[in-house]
Amino acid sequence: MATQRVLQWRAFARTWWLYDAANQCPFVSAYRVVPYLQGKHKPIFHPLSDVGDHVVVINTKDIAMQADYWRTFTFFHHTGYPGGFSKASAWRVHEIDPTRVMQLSVYSRIKGNLLRKGLMRRLHLFPDDKIPDEILENVSDQIRQVQPVAKRLDQYSEEEVTEFPKFFDWPEDFVKDGYKRHMTRKKPKRRYTV
């Protein structure tokens, strides 16, 4: 049945989606991305059938955490051996691997069943927008971002900044750009692995 064959082929085809994680919360993004990995957006979805799509996430190095989460949100890990526990705050994990926070938030969003590892294999994470051609050529659509991206101050032109109405001028000896991260934390007991 030739016609039915191609209809079947199309119904079970895996679409490749692109998701731009720049300035997006990784936890909210996980809620958006996971249904695509599971195939829940398809009418043929069934929890036991493997009908999920591929999702290519780019710019994971530019993800945005709300409030003070870069400092306070902690990722835990245990190797399973005695003394194998380690933990690291979000900024530290992000420093080690810029795709890791996104990966962990998607992983924890998926239910812990036998499908989880397989679904994660269809999540392709890239720290920036440099994607290999063999992956980019597969992509046929994109997923909408979860939050609007605000324009940064340095993205406005000089003219726009000067013309913006101001209540007062900063005094000349005021140091505007003096914030630096305090490195007073203790060295972690064990290096956060994987």
């Binding site: 679409t15 490749w16 063999e134 597969n138």
Partner: peptide
């Protein structure tokens, strides 16, 4: 979709 895969459609 998926031009570089064996499931291309």
């Amino acid at each position: 979709a998926g031009q570089r895969t064996i499931m291309a459609v």
